[in-house]
Amino acid sequence: MRIVSGMRPTGKLHLGHYLGVLKNWVKLQNENDCFFFVADWHALSTSYEDKLNLKKLTKELVKDWIAAGIDPEKSVLFVQSDIKEHAELYVLLNMITPLGWLERNPTYKDQLQQLEGKDIHTAGFLTYPVLQTSDIILYDAQAVPIGEDQRPHIEIAREIVRRFHHLFECEVFTEPKELLSPTPRLQGLDGRKMSKSYNNAIYLTDTKEEIWSKLRTAKTDPQRVKRTDPGDPEVCLVYDYHKEFSDEEMVQKVAEGCKTAAIGCVDCKKMCLESIERVLEPIRERREKLDEEYIDSVIENGNKKAKIVASKKMEAVNRAVFEIKCNIEN
């Protein structure tokens, strides 16, 4: 299948990004035709006031992707703003998208509440799903890997495609489907959502020492006041980390040790550290070998491949809109 997905360059990636997105991308690229893009225009929809160095952050993001296992020989890696057809299609789709569709979008309402401290009452933020639709249908994506909370955006994309086809009597686009993927929600070290803004994240670039400094402060079962007190692993944040990063034998050992007080919280955290380190150490090592010249070449090559697909699609779109002419091949 043709798979399209993107990520905003707003800062360093953490374990939540790795589990929720990157691991899935690595699997998908082995069996599908994947286009992964740096969504720098999308970053501006909520962070336009943050004065982000998007060029630098873009390169760092691509470096993280490759270090985590995304292969530029298997997947097309490109930058959204370098392919101007995204903006061209975005403008055209905005002309036909009913305002009510966007205002009723539950994700829009949720984000307004979650980002209450930011001024995001902008046209760009409201029409975020239209730009997202452009990103997807420009490449004839058959499926988009998403979490459950993103389903409304894919439904809007399908509705926009159907409306375009109806208005211009020309089937130009592939109607995308959601590819619901397991996206474990890894809590931050304080029990809240893992986030840079909460200062509770373990980053892919953290050293073993930095990870331990953070992990030793992680919340555990509050009922285990003494080392000899038995605990409940299911209410322990560190046990959740074990379930994601440790093997089955270690997970069982930790659970039993917690329930019987055979191991203490510090010992449990040290074991968890080793499990996390087994995943992050090779990522850090691969990342160190990636120089800026190589990253630039990956982006340049990916942009060229994306441009070929995007420009061909926009030729068909413009024929449908301005010449009222449908190209059967598209």
Rank of each mutant, 00 (worst) to 15 (best):
I160K: 05
C34Y: 01
D135Q: 05
A87C: 00
R185F: 02
L19K: 09
K305N: 12
E248I: 02
P176M: 11
V4Q: 04
C268A: 12
H17R: 09
W41E: 04
G257P: 05
G6E: 03
E315T: 11
Q187S: 13
K226L: 15
L204Q: 06
R8E: 11
E285A: 14
K59S: 15
C268H: 11
N200P: 05
I324P: 00
D50W: 01
V321G: 12
S297M: 07
Q111T: 04
S134Q: 07
Q223S: 15
H153P: 06
K63C: 08
E209M: 05
R216H: 01
T228E: 15
E210S: 10
F37G: 03
K305L: 14
K27C: 02
L126V: 11
A43P: 03
S75R: 01
V4F: 14
K177G: 09
H242C: 09
D119I: 00
D71P: 03
L189S: 06
W41M: 14
T127H: 14
M7C: 12
L167G: 02
D135G: 07
R151A: 14
A68K: 02
E209N: 11
P145V: 07
V4K: 03
K243I: 01
W65L: 06
E155F: 03
Q29H: 13
S47F: 14
I160Y: 05
S246E: 08
I156A: 10
V254K: 03
M194A: 04
D149P: 02
R192G: 15
S75D: 01
V251H: 01
T217K: 15
K214C: 06
D247M: 05
T217L: 11
D291E: 13
F35M: 13
W65R: 01
T122P: 13
E210T: 06
L57S: 04
L92F: 08
D40F: 03
M194I: 01
E85N: 11
K118H: 04
G100D: 12
S246W: 04
L61C: 10
R104C: 02
D50S: 13
V172F: 10
A316V: 02
D82H: 15
G188N: 12
S275F: 04
M194G: 02
S5T: 15
G100R: 10
G117P: 00
R286Q: 13
D110N: 13
K243M: 13
R216Y: 01
E323Y: 03
I211Q: 10
Y18G: 07
V26G: 10
Q111G: 02
V251N: 02
D247E: 12
E175Y: 04
G124A: 12
V317N: 06
T205N: 08
A39C: 10
S134I: 05
W212K: 11
L102Q: 00
K55H: 09
E281F: 07
L89I: 05
A39K: 06
R158P: 11
K177E: 15
V266P: 00
